[in-house]
Simulated assay, not measured.
Amino acid sequence: MDLFNTEKISNILPYDGIVNYYGKVLKLSEAKHFYDCLLQTIEWKNDEAIIFGKHIVTKRKAAWYGDSNYAYTYSGTTKQALVWTKELLELKKITQQHTGETFNSCLLNLYHDGNEGMSWHSDDETSLGINTAIASISFGAERKFSFKHKKSKQTFSVMLETGSLLLMKGATQSHWLHALPKTSIIKKARINLTFRTIVL
C-alpha cells in the first residue's frame, strides 16, 4: 500500500521555475511532536550576517546540520554542519519520500513571533549548485511565504501551515526571490526546516 500521495503536484509558479506545495504531510499531532522536539534538541544560535560591511546578529535563531561537516556560507558568514538528530533524519526521510529528491543537509530557522522574518533573497550560493532543489517543512505558527520575480517584479504568496511541505526546484532560485514577511499579528513561534544538497 502506498502511504504517500503520488499524484502529480502542480507548479504554483506562473513561469521561470517550479514550486510544488504539498500542503500538510504530517498530522497535527505529529507536527506538534516534531515542533516540541526541535525546540528542545536543536542547537539553536542567533543567526549572523554581514550587511554592507556591518556585522548583524538577528533575533531569529538558526542551525545547520548535514551528512558531513559541510561548510555553508551565506550573508557573509559560514556555518559548519552538526550531526543529524533522530528527528531530523525522520523528517529528511519523509521529505525525500514525498518529493523524490535527495538531500544531504538542512538549515533550520526559529522565528519567535511575527516580528521576525526574512527579507527578499534567493538561495543561489555556489555550494548549492545550479537549479538546486530545496524542500521546506514548517512547524508552529502559520506564516505567509512570498515570491517576487527578479525581472517582472510579479509577486504572489502562499500560507505555510504547520506540518506542511513546499519544494522549490528548477530555475526558481535564478529567476525568483522569496521572503517571509514580518507581521505584528502573529504572536506564536515558527520553526522552518529547509533541506538542501551541498555540492561536493
Results as ranks from 00 to 15, higher is better:
residue 76 G to K: 09
residue 78 T to S: 15
residue 79 K to H: 11
residue 79 K to P: 15
residue 79 K to G: 12
residue 83 V to I: 14
residue 84 W to R: 04
residue 88 L to M: 13
residue 91 L to P: 13
residue 92 K to G: 06
residue 93 K to D: 05
residue 96 Q to D: 07
residue 97 Q to K: 11
residue 98 H to V: 08
residue 100 G to W: 06
residue 105 S to T: 01
residue 108 L to N: 14
residue 112 H to G: 11
residue 114 G to Q: 03
residue 115 N to L: 12
residue 115 N to W: 02
residue 115 N to Q: 09
residue 116 E to R: 03
residue 117 G to D: 02
residue 130 I to Y: 01
residue 131 N to S: 12
residue 133 A to E: 08
residue 133 A to L: 03
residue 139 F to G: 08
residue 140 G to V: 00
residue 142 E to L: 08
residue 143 R to N: 04
residue 143 R to F: 06
residue 146 S to P: 00
residue 148 K to R: 15
residue 149 H to A: 05
residue 150 K to G: 07
residue 151 K to G: 04
residue 153 K to D: 12
residue 153 K to F: 12
residue 155 T to M: 13
residue 155 T to C: 14
residue 159 M to S: 14
residue 161 E to A: 08
residue 163 G to N: 06
residue 163 G to R: 01
residue 164 S to I: 13
residue 170 G to H: 02
residue 174 S to H: 10
residue 176 W to H: 09
residue 177 L to S: 07
residue 178 H to M: 11
residue 178 H to N: 06
residue 178 H to W: 06
residue 179 A to E: 10
residue 179 A to W: 00
residue 180 L to M: 11
residue 180 L to D: 01
residue 185 I to V: 14
residue 185 I to A: 11
residue 186 I to W: 01
residue 191 I to Q: 09
residue 192 N to D: 11
residue 192 N to S: 15
residue 192 N to R: 02
residue 193 L to H: 05
residue 195 F to W: 05
residue 196 R to N: 14
residue 198 I to K: 03
